[in-house]
């Protein structure tokens, strides 16, 4: 489970579809990763934020920044400072743990042991979510990233993720 100590109690409940819609409206090239990717792939995982891996191409950084500004994104700062993302930070930092008006949004340039958008875009599934088409990291790659990250919450999720992957494989063989 992906709970955060940095403010669920005082922050808005995350709105997954609204966050995705905002990113797509601005034409951001991104992959859904983490717990939401696992859930979309059929592994029942609870997470309180949306994790996305973004392409660092300069034009995409512009689009991402526009989306983040529309969402009134700021960093989840334990000291309570109001720090907003900017192009320099999006270009250089690996992890951006943000709070938006639609809840917690983590925008990342790499996951696991350093896998980037370019490394992983070939391991995604294109899902239709109503009017939206969203690229989602496949479950096997989510599992690899969780094993590499190896935090307590990642290890806790692994049994469910592995069972879901095994069940998906069995269903695929039966088809």
């Amino acid at each position: 489970m992906g709970s955060r100590s940095s403010g669920v109690a005082e922050s808005p409940s995350v709105k997954f579809l609204g966050l995705l819609r905002a990113l797509l409206r601005h034409g951001v090239d991104f992959l859904v990763v983490g717990g939401v990717a696992a859930q979309l792939e059929g592994a029942p995982i609870v997470t309180f934020d949306l994790d996305v891996l973004y392409d660092k191409a300069p034009e995409n950084l512009d689009r991402l920044l526009a989306a983040l500004r529309e969402l009134k994104a700021r960093y989840r700062d334990p000291a309570g400072r109001h720090i907003e993302p900017d192009l320099g930070k999006l270009e250089t930092l690996r992890t951006h743990l943000l709070l938006t008006e639609l809840g917690a949004l983590d925008v990342l340039t790499a996951i696991g042991e350093g896998s980037t958008y370019q490394d992983l875009v070939g391991r995604t599934v294109l899902y239709e979510l109503g009017e939206m088409r969203v690229r989602v990291l496949e479950l096997a790659a989510v599992i690899e990233s969780k094993k590499q990250a190896n935090r307590d919450k990642d290890r806790a999720a692994l049994p469910t993720l592995l069972q879901a992957l095994a069940m998906k494989d069995r269903l695929r063989q039966d088809d």
């Binding site: 997954f16 939401v36 859930q39 059929g42 029942p44 879901a164």
Partner: peptide
């Protein structure tokens, strides 16, 4: 969960 559509899962 696997029996649901992706939108239903979300």
């Amino acid at each position: 969960t696997l029996s649901l559509t992706p939108l239903e899962r979300l």
